[in-house]
Design a protein around this nucleic acid. Structure first.
Lengths: 169, 169
DNA sequence: AAATTTTACCTAGCCTGGCTAGCAATTCTG
DNA sequence: CAGAATTGCTAGCCAGGCTAGGTAAAATTT
């Protein structure tokens, strides 16, 4: 083995066995996750909203663009917070001018949430250049490796699902 | 054409132009991110600690394994929370039996944080099978595509760094 | 080496953003 | 149509951030 037991462990690769050629891939994944977190933090700071509110805005905008507008209920589900917390969130975001509540055309109990034009611009300002760069990164992946990348990512996603404890039946 | 302008947009690919062959890669990235979030949520629930505390435990354990133990200060920096909040966090986690404070051998102001054996086991129970699966996923990437994967991920990470506003200069 | 500044950590007390409970309006169902 | 279910709201609680301010130890200056 490459990490001699009992010796001072290497500083970069905590858990890892350096000799495994698969390790650099997981290290790259780790770097990506870190960068993702930092990006979110930067965006929160810049737009002066918390993480949940930011994700809410992102969701609202995405659905607005897709023409499948979002209700308070739907938002609550997406964010995994209660409908009560969602009501508070909507209050915050409408007071700060980020979103607007609109009546749902087909259900008078329900509320449609839309982003204000200002919010659209603000988010576009952040996301669209970022998105362009990400798209370019994806285009730079050689044709013959694209499927491998997709498979790897999906396989990773699969890895994160906990193995079902073999219970009774 | 794939996304007829003005028509009702497709539900899966909000922002995307389906015709770009790079898009499936970003969609896979998105699926991975989602899975990652869900994994964390599951772990929080299962171990009955909040996200910050969980990340703290992870960090402590990783550093413990690497033989570079972590101080309260270091933890505070890693988590991006104040030293005061870190003190509270350490109180929570030591009351719940997850960690222990130890004197720093070389600096009597400082505190070394270690995880209890129980915590090590608990985290190992979650992470090491997951890690095995991730490692397998990485090994399954064909040799000739590995570099492309690493490059893509690093390039994505790079993409997340906001472009420097061209200011005065 | 004495005095000063900086650093690591702590407690006290505040505020934001979750939560449950409970209500009104609307829609669905038998 | 009566009763059950669903959507969203307010009220009020609590966890987990924060700033302010204190002490002890270490580092730096004089």
């Amino acid at each position: 083995m490459s990490t001699p037991p009992g010796s001072g462990a290497p500083s970069t690769a905590y858990w890892f066995d350096d000799s495994d050629p698969a390790v650099p891939l997981l290290q790259a994944v780790r770097r990506f996750r870190r960068a993702d977190e930092e990006m979110r933090r930067g965006m929160e700071t810049d737009m002066d909203v918390n993480a949940t509110d930011l994700e809410a805005l992102r969701h609202v905008i995405a659905h607005e663009r897709a023409g499948t507008p979002v209700t308070a209920r739907g938002l609550s589900g997406h964010l995994h917070i209660s409908t009560a917390s969602t009501a508070k969130l909507l209050n915050r975001l409408s007071e700060s001018g980020h979103i607007r509540r609109r009546p749902h055309p087909g259900d008078r109990r329900s509320v449609i949430v839309t982003a204000t034009e200002h919010t659209h611009e603000e988010v576009r300002g952040w996301l669209s250049p970022m998105h362009q760069r990400m798209l370019q990164a994806a285009r730079d992946v050689p044709e013959e490796s694209r499927q491998a990348v997709v498979d790897f990512l999906d396989s990773l996603a699969e890895s994160l699902i906990p193995e079902p404890e073999d219970g009774d039946g």
